[in-house]
């Protein structure tokens, strides 16, 4: 049986467009709002990434740190994250949802326990920022056995040999980090150069769904739309921060922003 992630990409290919992938943090700015946000933006986004917050995120820039901080201040726990997923999936059973975060939370929860919770709440995939290949081989296999996608990451520093190995060990989606940066950095490489790298990776195995993330905003997204998918995260976290500052409703704000992003790539 094909995964929901694979189906989402198939659907986008049929429509000859890139998949729009959003990233928001579970519990930002409240548990209820983050569920409402998912429900709203899932009308425009093809795949949803949901961050489970950590207080020492070594690969995240200011925006996502801020969102994680807000969520944790609200008392966000892993069990709440799974509850949000479960509730979301009840009304959106076909929309793929990927959890993203740091390994220590999985380690403390116990790998088996964590995967069990993923399965029962309906998580489709996992991105673990600090569990690279080959250290992630065992865990990635356990995910596969449970029918959960383990999403491998590639970066501009990844050597070609290493890329081949990672791609061989990948599931239905691979994530290419556009530049040397934490999340939320300014795009310091030209979209042309990013696509050049992207196409080189694509040629290693054209059948794999390869998405680009890091530094993508409403300003840059259309110049990258030839990719299989594009991830927007920090912009959304920043939108929440700003709407809170202006005493606006983050849910409606985010709905608009994501709608606009989608418009730019179709």
């Amino acid at each position: 049986m094909k995964s929901k992630i694979a189906l989402a990409f198939e659907n986008c290919k049929k429509e000859k467009r890139a998949a729009l992938i959003t990233y928001t943090v579970a519990g930002d700015n409240t548990k209820n709002n983050s569920l409402k946000i998912l429900n709203k933006i899932s009308k425009h986004a093809d795949i949803l990434e949901l961050g489970f917050p950590h207080n020492t995120p070594i690969a995240d820039g200011g925006q996502i740190q801020g969102s994680s901080h807000r969520a944790l201040k609200n008392g966000m726990k892993l069990k709440d994250v799974f509850q949000i997923v479960k509730k979301f999936k009840k009304t959106n059973p076909l929309k793929p949802l990927i959890l993203m975060g740091y390994y220590n939370l999985i380690y403390q929860n116990g790998e088996s326990n964590f995967l069990k919770n993923c399965k029962s709440s309906g998580v489709d995939g996992l991105i673990i920022v600090d569990l690279p290949y080959p250290e992630n081989k065992d865990f990635a296999n356990r995910c596969k056995k449970k029918g959960i996608n383990f999403i491998q990451l590639l970066s501009p520093t990844t050597s070609r040999e290493r890329m081949k190995n990672i791609i061989k060990n990948s599931h239905d989606m691979i994530y290419y980090i556009s530049m040397l940066s934490t999340t939320g950095g300014k795009l310091k490489v030209s979209p042309k150069k990013i696509l050049e790298n992207y196409n080189k990776i694509k040629r290693i195995n054209p059948s794999k769904n390869l998405v680009i993330g890091f530094g993508i905003t409403d300003k840059t997204i259309s110049s990258l739309k030839s990719a299989n998918g594009l991830v927007v995260g920090s912009l959304l976290c920043k939108t929440i921060t700003n709407s809170l500052k202006m005493r606006q409703n983050p849910v409606t704000k985010l709905d608009k922003v994501v709608y606009n992003l989608k418009k730019k790539i179709i």
């Binding site: 600090d130 690279p132 250290e135 990451l153 970066s155 520093t157």
Partner: peptide
């Protein structure tokens, strides 16, 4: 110990 690091730092 180990190397629980983002992919970007693997090569450096």
């Amino acid at each position: 110990g180990g190397n629980f690091i983002p992919e970007t730092l693997k090569k450096p």
